[in-house]
Design a protein around this nucleic acid. Structure first.
Lengths: 337, 337
DNA sequence: TTGTAAGCGTTATCAA
DNA sequence: TTGATAACGCTTACAA
């Protein structure tokens, strides 16, 4: 059985409250007494029980980060910046793998309502749920959303402007002199994906290019889909010269198919992908991508949450950040790969 | 302020203990009373405070998973299987990103000693620390190590036999008819890496091949190192025909260099990499790899920890699992890429 | 079936 | 500078 405050108090011959003050570096403890107490603390490697402390202080100094899929590229960056902000403010961060499972998500979210953690940030995930609502409303909404939309509820949210991203990607390809540009995307049900499509459409419009339905491919986002979509596109009378793919995996498949066909990138086909990842930089040729401001995303989310925890309301409920285009060889012959 | 047991007791007009029994589905509560209580619980969406519950029950039903680097390939598999075992036993799993930082690791490890979680599993990391010792000894060692060695302390540990892995990789290349085989590895200080090297050496020995120091390359494990090492090796009078690389990133660089040189894989150079990852399967050609039994690793770790939590001692303190070779095109012309 | 009361290990208030 | 003592919100004997 580990020691308790009471044990130490008895050993030193003082009251529990004195020990408590001592180990918390609070004023009002005699030099001598403090020394004696700390000696025992060191000697027995005493660690105060945080459950008890949390119960008494009504805080845990821990925040939870709910991740829909650990393998999502960019998550490590977001996590890192959230941790930086949180740690600096004296909070520990724990990660929860919801695996896009709504029950797991609810269970982890309850960590907040059940006082296990002081607040939570949900990153990503496509689940439509109003369940968040109750959980969020409970602890006076110590919840922040990143790259995810809540239905019907006003929860502080940090988003990246995916429509802008889609626009940047498409406009860039147009500027490369291409007029037939295909988009290979994930599920159109996914809000973030549909926004990319909107950006794509807007860019075509702004450049007076026709929108061709046969160049829009909704897929499951897999590498195979990237591969097969290229084959399908080549069946067209006039195949596209540029591709906007909304994920790195799609890009991998697409590139394989292109190479397999004996074509060259970017000479025969130019490609722009969405989101930086190990793959986009490692693949040959390196991919031009729409890059999200991951650090800012994480930093803002953490700052918002800390405000909520301190009962201040964040300045704006929804914050939309701008992506930028990172040009690399896959879309531009000028750049050496 | 959220409701408490006491509030509900008052509202229903019963004692706290009755409410407690009701919400915990314990026997000894009248049908009528139970209904009334649960009605209020639903109505107000009451969630018992887990800090208080944990304090009273001396358990949290949470276990922590300490990860040295979230981007490590294979982690998601390990995490998944640990979660499966833990969830089935009624435990939630939280993830802690130690980022190979010894201070963060200690801080997260204290979650155990401070009763925030019931136990912890550390996966990977190369830090040499006896600090774990104290923390582990505290809560009677509710700690399990995966792919990591503890110094001087007996902590239940699950390892993969990396020497065996190195042996499999090297022997396979030898069986392809190659006699000059290079190893490109990470830091030799890293126990796991040095074991791979030992396996490499043993395989050469067993096949009566000479050990050539000039074919052993210790690197920082980066893609660039993979690239540059190939260039260096080609300077030799007799360059190797086979490569055993101990990480996928090294393989990426190596392959780039090989292709850049106008050579073909596996015809000119055969490659075996270590550890499955998105990259090893996506790259062209797909890589033959030494694959670790990730699921078993996670499952065993979770089972060991649960035993520790229940004060049973696991059957064996150190458990060594066997890796297997997954043959793909990078080492074998027979396999179509 | 229900209630009383002690206990879990802290913090915080108020006196001394 | 210290010490009692009452919270904090729950569980669990033990009694009724």
């Amino acid at each position: 059985m580990p020691l308790t405050l009471k044990d130490i108090a008895r050993m030193v011959g003082v009251a529990e409250s004195t020990v408590s003050r001592a180990i918390n570096n609070k004023p009002g403890v005699g030099e001598e007494t403090r020394r004696k107490i700390m000696k025992i603390v060191k000697e027995y490697n005493f660690k105060p029980n945080q459950l008890a402390r949390g119960l008494a202080k009504k805080e845990t100094r821990i925040i939870a980060l709910l991740l829909s899929d650990l393998a999502t590229p960019g998550y490590t960056e977001i996590i890192k910046s959230i941790e930086e902000v949180a740690n600096r403010a004296g909070y520990q961060v724990i990660l929860c793998n919801t695996a896009n499972d709504i029950d797991k998500e609810k269970a982890y979210l309850e960590l907040v309502a059940r006082n296990r953690v002081d607040g939570a940030i949900i990153v990503g995930g496509e689940l439509a749920d109003k369940n968040i609502l109750n959980l969020a409303l409970n602890k006076e909404g110590r919840l922040v959303l990143v790259n995810r939309l809540a239905e019907e509820v006003l929860i502080p949210t940090i988003l990246v402007d995916n429509a802008k991203g889609g626009y940047l990607a498409t406009a860039h390809l147009i500027e490369q002199g291409l007029s037939r540009i295909a988009i290979i995307m994930g599920s159109i049900q996914d809000f973030l994906e549909s926004e990319k499509l909107n950006g794509y459409k807007q860019a075509l419009k702004d450049h007076n290019l026709p929108l061709r339905e046969e160049l829009i491919f909704e897929t499951d986002g897999s590498r195979e889909s990237g591969y097969n979509t290229f084959l399908n596109l080549m069946e067209l009378d006039e195949p596209p010269g540029g591709f906007f793919v909304t994920s790195d995996l799609l890009a991998v498949g697409l590139i394989e198919a292109i190479k397999m066909g004996g074509y060259f990138i970017p000479d025969d086909f130019a490609i722009v992908s969405y989101g930086e990842s190990l793959i986009t930089s490692i693949i040959n040729p390196p991919l031009t991508v729409v890059a999200e401001p991951l650090n800012k995303l994480g930093r803002l989310a953490a700052e918002y949450l800390l405000k909520l925890i301190n009962n201040q309301s964040p300045d704006r409920v929804i914050r939309v950040l701008e992506p930028v285009l990172k040009m690399r060889a896959s879309s531009n012959p000028q750049i050496k790969s």
